[in-house]
C-alpha cells in the first residue's frame, strides 16, 4: 500500500506533464504546418491587363476570394514588359519572399532562353499546374476550307502570300505555326503577322484581315460558328467542345501536339511550410466546381499537378521549347 502513495501523487503530475507534452507537441506541429500569409499576396501576371493570363489570374482571385481560402487578399499585378522578362526578373529579386506568386504562360520557357536572362524556371519554386490550354487551327468560314487538304492547297495556291495571325513573335502561336509549316512542307509559304492579344488575333480572322490563326478555343468562341471555322486540333484527343474537329494525330501528324501551361510559381528559397500552404490552396482551387466549370466551358484541359512531377514537367517543357526555338534557327546551342 505504501508503494501506492507516490504513485498516487504521480498521477496528477504525470497527467500534467503528459498534457504539457501534448500541448507542446501539438504546438510544434501547429507551428510547423501553420504558415499562413500575413500580408497581401502579390499575384504577378506575365502579361498586360485583359489578356489570357490576366483573365485566368482574375478568375483564380475570384474563386479564392469567394471561398475565403486565404486570410489575406490576392493582389493581381501586371508586369507585362519584355514578353515576361520583367515579371520573371521581379520574382528573382524577391528571392525567399513567400508573399509573391507568378502565374505563367509558355513565355516562361521561351523568354529566358531567347533573351539570356539571369533567371529561368530552375531559379523559382514550382507550386502548381492548373490547366493546359489547347490550340486549334482556324480559318475564316468564307474561305470555304473544310479540312487540312483544302488548307494545304489554299496555302500553296497563294504562293507565299498566305497570312497567319498570332500573338507576339517567337511565342506560342509562332512556334505552332512553324510546327505546322514543317509538318506539311509549307516552309516560307506562310507570313506570320504578330498582334497584341489572342482576342485581337481572332477578330482579325473573323474580319478577313488574315487568312488563318492558331487561337485557343476561348478566343475563337465569340466568332464560332458564324465567322471562324476550326480545321484541326493540336491535342492528342479530340476537344469535347469541338467533337467534329479531328486532331492532327488522326490526320497522321502525331508530333503536332502543343499546349499552353497555366501554372503557379513562387520565388526561389521560400519556406517549406509556405510552399505546402500554396500547394494546398491551389489543390483546392483546381478541384473546385468553379474551376471545373470554367475549364470545360472554355475547352481547356484541367490538369492538376504539383510537387516533383511538376518539376519534371517543367524540365521536359523547357527542353521541348529549346528544341522548337533551335528548329526555327532562333536559338543556338
Amino acid at each position: 500500500m505504501k508503494s501506492l502513495k507516490p504513485s498516487k501523487r504521480a498521477i496528477p503530475f504525470l497527467t500534467l506533464a503528459l498534457s504539457l507534452l501534448i500541448v507542446v507537441a501539438l504546438g510544434t506541429t501547429q507551428a510547423l504546418a501553420a504558415w499562413k500569409p500575413t500580408r497581401p499576396i502579390e499575384f504577378v501576371i506575365m502579361a498586360g491587363k485583359g489578356g489570357g493570363a490576366d483573365r485566368i489570374a482574375r478568375l483564380m482571385q475570384k474563386i479564392v476570394t469567394q471561398n475565403k481560402w486565404s486570410p489575406q487578399p490576392l493582389v493581381p499585378i501586371n508586369k507585362k514588359g519584355g514578353s515576361g522578362a520583367e515579371a520573371m526578373l521581379y520574382l528573382l529579386s524577391k528571392k525567399g519572399n513567400p508573399h509573391v506568386i507568378l502565374v505563367t504562360l509558355n513565355s516562361f520557357f521561351t523568354t529566358p532562353a531567347l533573351r539570356k536572362l539571369p533567371v529561368n524556371y530552375t531559379k523559382l519554386t514550382p507550386v502548381y499546374r492548373l490547366a493546359m490550354d489547347t490550340f486549334l487551327l482556324w480559318v475564316n468560314t468564307k474561305s470555304g476550307i473544310k479540312n487540312m487538304d483544302d488548307f494545304v492547297k489554299a496555302v500553296k495556291a497563294k504562293k507565299g502570300k498566305w497570312t497567319m495571325g498570332g500573338t507576339g513573335k517567337m511565342q506560342e502561336d509562332q512556334l505552332v505555326t512553324n510546327m505546322l509549316m514543317q509538318a506539311y512542307g509549307l516552309k516560307g509559304m506562310i507570313t506570320y503577322v504578330p498582334f497584341r492579344g489572342g482576342g485581337t488575333v481572332a477578330k482579325n480572322l473573323a474580319g478577313g484581315h488574315v487568312d488563318s490563326t492558331v487561337n485557343n478555343p476561348s478566343e475563337g468562341l465569340p466568332h464560332y460558328p458564324g465567322k471562324m471555322k476550326p480545321i484541326a486540333a493540336l491535342t492528342p484527343e479530340r476537344i469535347p467542345a469541338f467533337k467534329d474537329v479531328p486532331t492532327f494525330k488522326e490526320l497522321g501528324q502525331p508530333q503536332l501536339v502543343y499546349f499552353m501551361q497555366r501554372s503557379i510559381n513562387a520565388p526561389g528559397g521560400i519556406p517549406k511550410d509556405a510552399l505546402a500552404w500554396y500547394t494546398d490552396l491551389f489543390n483546392k482551387l483546381c478541384n473546385s466546381k468553379e474551376w471545373k466549370d470554367y475549364t470545360s466551358s472554355k475547352a481547356l484541359n484541367r490538369a492538376c499537378l504539383s510537387g516533383a512531377p511538376l518539376g519534371k514537367f517543367f524540365a521536359d517543357e523547357d527542353v521541348k521549347h529549346k528544341k522548337l526555338l533551335m528548329g526555327m534557327g532562333l536559338l543556338k546551342n
Binding site: R39, P40, V75
Partner: peptide, 17 residues
C-alpha cells in the same frame, strides 16, 4: 482598394502577426 503601397524597412510596422 487593396493596393499595397511601398513600405521599405518599416514594413513590419504595418503587419503585426
Amino acid at each position: 482598394l487593396i493596393i499595397p503601397l511601398p513600405k521599405g524597412y518599416a514594413e513590419f510596422l504595418f503587419y503585426w502577426n
